[in-house]
Design a protein around this nucleic acid. Structure first.
Lengths: 218, 218
DNA sequence: TAGATTGTTAATCGATTAACAATC
DNA sequence: TAGATTGTTAATCGATTAACAATC
């Protein structure tokens, strides 16, 4: 389990880190005029316990005001800073199929300072095709693209069979952060972080609950 | 926290349920000839502790054989059954943009018995457009589609602003399981399960680690 | 039998949350 | 001041895992 030292010298757990983007997102749902926000209100929007909000935010060295709450603008800035969103990040996207194309065109990327700097595909037929402002490149261009364009994040949107090979290439090129949309469980060296986003896993978790509710009521 | 009774009358935690699809997926990575699989091997592929594998599988009423391991085919069948994958599920997809189209065309759906039975969009310009074997329909067709086509799962692939309204419509139509790709935190009534899949959240978790590693080494 | 591996217990570990003193 | 809300402690709760008897 990765343990990261925060600014105060303590630790921020994975669970807390995973909630920070949700808080940031939740703050956007507040009325624009609202300058201050209580842990209770934020908890309501984010769907968590208010003590948890306060505890999570205390890791940021965030300073709310007792009796008042958190300054919304300040809190947003602190969350952005904690998440490292003050820098820009270049992303390489591998796989220019349906999903890859959708991801490359996804506007939400830019809002948080992410830029798709390269789209690669091993399929010769896709190479050269336009994807947003980019052209699909050969997969063999991966290493040079990563190095020359300062890419720090790899997004895998290939078929399952290709995912492990792509992950290997990414780690060999020095990438330490991978977002994997292929329904594969990747093996990567120590120090490389993989986040797996899998549509079928999510659907299967839903169906588990559907079918166990049906069982319970029969 | 939703607590579900399993076949043995005990409970299966959310964490365990979330690992079941990963085990199922991991079994596919075994050599085709391999008939039996130990918890240790499965743990290696799935990236978890072997005691956890055994504990998780024990909830299924699964019966491995001491000294031998788990019968692969049998275990697959048990996982599928536990996840409710023996039934088919009809899915309504709302939002026929880049992501929605990619999801509708995603082949992995079918592999697990999911069928996209309707694609809806509130944008008149998209209505009528072909998406795979379907035609995009008006959002107002939601309720009748859900009822007449036996739809039990809603997938939201709309812009953020529209997501809450769509969630409201889905729950009003009787949907109890929602997969939400919009970067919104949805408010839904008790008993409705929402799973949120958010690209920017995932990327932000990655950047947290990138930037905190950079801090630690400076 | 000896070796392997499960199923399960008990210990550990970590995460959540209630509660409340501090304080705006 | 009185009311509100934070920051933090301590209690609870739950999840992970080491360990090992059971047993193939």
């Amino acid at each position: 389990m990765p343990i990261i030292f925060d600014m105060v010298g303590g630790i921020i757990s994975d669970a807390t880190v995973a909630r920070l983007p949700v808080y940031l997102r939740s703050l956007a749902d507040l009325p624009a005029a609202q300058e201050t926000c209580s842990s209770d209100q934020l908890a309501g929007i984010a769907g968590v316990n208010s003590a948890q909000v306060r505890k999570d935010l205390s890791h940021l060295g965030s300073h709310g005001t007792r009796g008042v709450g958190y300054n919304v603008a300040e809190l947003k800035a602190q969350l952005r800073k904690a998440l490292g969103l003050n820098k820009g990040y270049s992303v390489v996207l591998i796989g220019a199929g349906n999903l890859g194309t959708a991801l490359a065109n996804y506007g939400g990327f830019h809002d948080w300072g992410f830029e798709v700097a390269a789209v690669l595909d091993s399929d010769r037929k896709k190479v050269g095709r336009a994807v947003g402002p980019l052209k699909v490149e050969e997969l063999s261009a991966l290493e040079s693209a990563v190095r020359s364009r300062g890419i720090s994040i790899g997004v895998i949107a290939t078929p399952t069979e290709a995912a492990q090979d792509v992950a290997d290439r990414l780690t060999r090129a020095g990438i330490r952060s991978i977002l994997n949309f292929a329904p594969a469980v990747l093996q990567v060296p120590e120090g490389v972080e993989v986040r797996r986003v899998d549509l079928s896993t999510e659907l299967q978790i839903l169906t588990y609950h559907i079918s166990s509710k049906a069982d319970a009521s029969s």
